[in-house]
């Protein structure tokens, strides 16, 4: 699984709503694989091309912790 990682649920919600305004659907879950330095954070799973979604999020300065993958390959 591949997702975009956010430090807080507020930022994840902001990104989700931004993507929705561009007709890209996504959903939020707690990060299934948090690293051992940070602890809890949130994952945004995108229906469609994650790179496009990530570019939109970056372009709109929604603070994020990058794209991460975990478990089976997408």
């Amino acid at each position: 699984m591949i997702y975009i990682k956010f430090a807080s649920v507020t930022l994840a919600e902001k990104a989700k709503n931004l993507l929705l305004s561009r007709s890209i659907k996504s959903y939020i879950k707690k990060n299934p694989n948090p690293n051992h330095k940070e602890g809890c954070n949130y994952a945004l799973f995108v229906y469609g091309d994650i790179s496009t979604a990530f570019r939109i999020i970056e372009k709109n300065s929604v603070s994020n912790l990058g794209i991460e993958s975990f478990g089976e390959k997408p």
């Binding site: 649920v9 930022l11 051992h36 602890g39």
Partner: peptide, 14 residues
Amino acid sequence: GSMSLNLKQPEFLP
């Protein structure tokens, strides 16, 4: 509910 393993308070809003 964020950065739970870090003892420092998050610096980001809110």
